[in-house]
Amino acid sequence: MSDDFRGTPLDAEDFEKGKVLFTRDEPKAEYAWDTGVAIGRYLQELKNGRLIARNCVKCRRVMIPPRMHCEWCWRPTDDWVYVQDRGLVNTFSLCYITWDMQRLKTPEIPAVIEIEGASPGHGIMHKLGGVDPKKVKVGMKVKAVWKPAEERVGSILDILHWAPT
């Protein structure tokens, strides 16, 4: 193999001090997404302060987020099942940066929360709150902290965060 590889590194400074020419643009893209059937009901129930899942009788699986087709057996799912607004922390992180690498003093605590009443290992992504970040553990029991009913709009953000029970 040749050691004479092409490619010319530039420094951030080359741009900041205008040592090199470049072009800038900000493409704009806007979307309005339909909820679909399953997530539409999911959001409606979030507004009511409840979590709802779909059941597949063939796979004996209660899945959340709900969907109208089970990806395992690829049949229509069979019925709606209310599940608890409690669960277990399956995994979590203490995140100290934003997507564009800005630093956060207080970490965000994203987690996968296994939902009580759904099949084992079936959870949703959300955030933990009302807890000392140092005390968060995998396997910890948590409960949803809801927005007041009059402020709920039918969004995953109707749950403010999940807190230890």
């Binding site: 987020p65 992180s93 995140c95 934003t98 992504m125």
Partner: peptide, 13 residues
């Protein structure tokens, strides 16, 4: 876009 993005996730999560 509906069930996760409102939480503001980034790739590191």
């Amino acid at each position: 876009h509906t069930t996760e993005r409102p939480l503001g996730p980034n790739l590191l999560w």
